[in-house]
Design a protein around this nucleic acid. Structure first.
Length: 492
RNA sequence: CGGGAGGUAGUUCAGCCCGGUAGAAUACGUGGUUUGGGACCACGGGGUCGCAGGUUCGAAUCCUGUCCUCCCGACCA
């Protein structure tokens, strides 16, 4: 048991905070609701970002960058979108400070420097991007337009949590324009598939693909598709969204193209995004009371090597051996760190790297040199084995793959155990209180019922699963007929 | 915005009630002994006690004001 980390059982929220802070991912900052992403956390993000970026490019997208600021008049053009985000916008009203005449050394906002038109700090970029697309799109030959941007956005949330909900966060947002609704819908689901692929195969995070109900839909979208993940406390977390925007933004920004028949048509749009929130999902899905557990494919370090030696002579022998090993491992494409820092003893390092979630630890001491072995320890299972040094890279590659797979299987088993059908209201309430997780239940399809259920249980409809089968049933609350089960859960 | 906790060394905190030379642990630096699960000894550097007023011979401590952060809830990715 770690000396520093609160156990999940004792205080789940504190456990999460401890992991983020003490695992070295991020720090609180001087700015309310904003965090500093530390190098270890940022390397993790870079690894995730780089892989997602490859996947976007493999599906035909290119990157661009649009401004941080959105003139208010553009922001309000798409009414629903503007309304949805209005109450969480930061707004720039002035462009200059000046010395405070009454308070030496202090600055005040210069009232002379008020902007003619306020600038909204983007909470999302549809407005600025679609105002630009208007000038880029004339003909069906300009379509599809498949653009992604990596950016920061600001949403002035009332309550923030490290990674899960910060005032400023990093994300990517894809914004595409298409000639037909069909194409746009295909794009929407294609990107949902990319997200699910990434979550499952890179983050070892099993997700459920689904579509949001009207009340949970992105402001300005026709349909919002999502991937939903399950955390260890039985609460759901939305890990990514892909929106079919119809012609809403094209109409708001008057983006038309000439089709093959020489007729003007509004273009069809999608947008899709994932954010640094994924890191929160990763932390909460996999880690334990000793610290983070990071899946090998995206771990900043996949392997850490710790030397154990008595005296400088032994150290020199170990150093020489490790130097070769590191070279071999790097050549095999493994991200490896050799920690020969003399300040800390091996035991301290073991605990430290467990806290940081490094998937594999290799310990090498005099005993190993003598026997031509190393000790390999897995972070996820804590298993330790002593193995021969020969073929180490291959062995490590296989082990990393195994860990990646085992982490996914474990998370999936947990997730699957926490999808429970409920057929009566009593059962529904009892499951939510006693077990948590996703509750699969019938719903009559109305906003009112959804809202009532939320008021009474705090559970919301996370999604209507895409793979759900048609089934006649009765709404859990109203008894009205329903044709398909939906997934309820309390969510982050 | 409501409720709670808090701001003193890099970090975690004690000291405040009852005013009188700013402390501990840990981290850091140097030297030495160590190293198979969070080592130890010696010496050393480091703090305008969140900020601004006030009371007082004297304020980290008492009073007033103010700023900020974290946690819980309502809002949300």
């Amino acid at each position: 048991m770690s000396k520093e980390i609160t156990s999940r059982l004792q205080d789940y929220a504190q456990w999460y905070n401890d992991l983020v802070i003490k695992g070295g991912l991020a720090d609180y900052s001087a700015v309310r609701g904003c965090m500093v992403i530390k190098p270890y956390g940022f390397t993790l993000w870079e690894n995730m970002r780089d892989q997602l970026d490859r996947m976007f490019k493999d599906t035909g997208h290119v990157n661009a960058y649009f401004p941080l600021f959105v003139p208010k008049s553009l922001f309000e053009a798409e009414e629903k979108n503007a309304e949805g985000f209005a109450k969480e916008c930061a707004i720039v009203t002035h462009y200059r400070l000046k010395s405070d005449p009454d308070n030496k050394g202090k600055l005040i906002v210069d009232p002379e420097a008020k902007l003619e038109e306020e600038l909204v700090v983007r909470p999302t970029s549809e407005a600025i991007i679609w105002s630009t697309y208007k000038t880029w799109i004339q003909s069906y030959r300009d379509l599809p337009l498949l653009i992604n941007q990596w950016a920061n956005v600001v949403r002035w949330e009332m309550r923030t949590r490290l990674f899960l909900r910060t005032t400023e966060f990093l994300w990517q947002e894809g914004h595409t324009a298409h000639a037909t609704a069909q194409e746009a819908i295909e794009e929407t689901t294609r990107m949902l598939d990319v997200y699910a692929d990434f979550a499952e195969n890179w983050m070892a995070l099993p997700v459920i693909k689904g579509v949001k109900t009207a009340s949970e839909r992105f402001a300005g979208a026709i349909d919002t598709y999502c991937i939903e993940a399950m955390m260890q406390d039985g609460k759901a977390l939305q890990a990514g969204t892909s929106h079919f925007l119809g012609q809403n933004f094209a109409k708001a920004f008057d983006v038309q193209f000439l089709n093959k028949e020489n007729k003007q048509e509004y273009v069809w749009a999608t947008s899709w995004g994932v954010s640094t929130r994924l890191i929160g999902a990763l932390v909460m899905a996999h880690s334990d009371d000793d610290g983070l557990i990071i899946p090998p494919k995206i771990a900043p370090f996949q392997v850490v090597i710790v030397p154990i030696h008595k005296g400088e002579e032994q150290k020199a022998v170990i150093d020489a051996k490790v130097k070769t090993l590191v070279q071999e491992l790097k050549l095999a494409g493994i991200r490896v760190k050799y920690d020969d820092n003399d300040n800390n003893r091996p035991g301290w390092k073991f605990a430290e790297y467990e806290k940081k979630g490094v998937p594999v630890r290799i310990a090498i001491g005099a005993r190993d040199i003598e026997n031509n072995t190393v000790e390999i320890a897995r972070r996820d299972t804590k298993e330790k084995v002593s193995v021969g040094m020969d073929d180490l890279p291959l062995r490590i590659i296989n082990l990393l793959q195994q860990i990646q797979q085992d982490m996914f299987d474990k998370a999936k088993a947990y997730r699957d155990e926490h999808i429970t059908p409920a057929n009566t209201w009593d059962e529904f309430v009892r499951l939510l209180n006693e077990k948590g997780g996703f509750i699969s239940a019938h719903w009559d399809g109305t906003d009112e019922t959804e809202e009532k259920i939320k008021e009474q249980t705090k559970a919301t409809i996370r999604c209507i699963p895409l793979n759900g089968e048609a089934e006649e049933g009765k709404c859990i609350l109203t008894g009205q007929p329903s044709k398909k089960r939906v997934l309820f859960a309390q969510a982050y």
